[in-house]
């Protein structure tokens, strides 16, 4: 009589405990990263390599998505604003949505998809082929080699990629709004300065810094902890970790976007 219920409660209990344990591990991971951040030596050449990997190589995808995000935004805003005869707000509208929301979020999601997944796979394979253990055995700190360079590189890269995304997007919107739909070019830029303001640009930068931490945190943690759960120590564990990393960092980016946004309304 009691037995089936017991099984159900046991399942619920073990799930929640392992979930909490995972959260705790992630928290400790972030804490460790921050502690090691203040403990040199930094691996300069690794940081440069990761900036190249996360920054330079993301440039194409960022420019493409930025241009098209701006163009779509311009098209849709034009369609809406024309109904109110407020086409003069097209430029500020495009700039504001890009700088406040779309720029940081899109950039972070693109970097997750392009760079974050690769980070997880790379670190995961280092874990299952016992390279991380080898670093440990040599009495070196694996964080300095596999986690911290990614962290620093992402914190440097993401705000810059976001700025590139914003500028490309604003000019993409300009292309559609001015060249295609016939808004005058002075009107597009005229009110941007007054309406956008420095505080919105700061908000975009704060967001992209927060997303940089989220992306590298989740992706490095997932790769670093491959094999610590029931999926075992094989190729499948790496593939699961990679999928998990992309899914959870995308979700966390949007959650974080809402939370940061609600502080700065």
């Amino acid at each position: 009589m009691i037995r089936p219920f017991k099984a159900i409660f046991k399942a619920i209990g073990s799930e929640s405990v392992s979930f909490l344990r995972g959260l705790g591990k992630m928290g400790i991971f972030l804490f460790d990263t921050i502690v090691y951040f203040f403990a040199p030596p930094y691996k300069h050449n690794l940081i440069v390599r990761q900036i190249w990997f996360l920054g330079n190589k993301s440039l194409t995808v960022i420019i493409m998505t930025g241009a098209f995000a701006g163009m779509v935004l311009s098209l849709q805003l034009f369609y809406t604003l024309r109904k109110f005869g407020a086409v003069s707000l097209l430029g500020p509208g495009v700039a504001l949505s890009l700088i406040r929301e779309l720029g940081p979020v899109f950039t972070a999601i693109m970097v997750t998809g392009r760079g974050g997944s690769a980070l997880t796979a790379e670190i995961g394979i280092m874990r299952i082929s016992e390279q991380i253990d080898a670093i440990h055995v040599m009495a070196l700190n694996p964080f300095n080699y596999v986690v911290l360079p990614n962290f620093i590189a992402a914190v440097i890269c993401l705000p810059l990629l976001t700025a590139i995304f914003d500028v490309v997007g604003i000019y993409g919107g300009y292309l559609v709004g001015v060249k295609l739909l016939g808004v005058s070019s002075g009107v597009y830029f005229a009110q941007m300065r007054q309406i956008v303001g420095m505080e919105n640009i700061n908000l975009g930068i704060y967001k992209s810094l927060a997303f940089a931490v989220i992306v590298t945190w989740v992706c490095c943690y997932k790769g670093y902890s491959v094999g610590s759960d029931s999926t075992g120590f094989g190729a499948r564990a790496v593939s699961k970790a990679t999928t998990d990393a992309v899914v959870s960092s995308s979700v966390l980016i949007l959650v974080g976007d809402y939370i940061i946004g609600s502080f700065f309304i």
Partner: peptide
């Protein structure tokens, strides 16, 4: 990246 950031800050912000 820095040029874009500067452009945004000065021209738009």
């Amino acid at each position: 990246g820095l040029v874009c950031l500067a452009y945004l800050s000065v021209k738009v912000g």
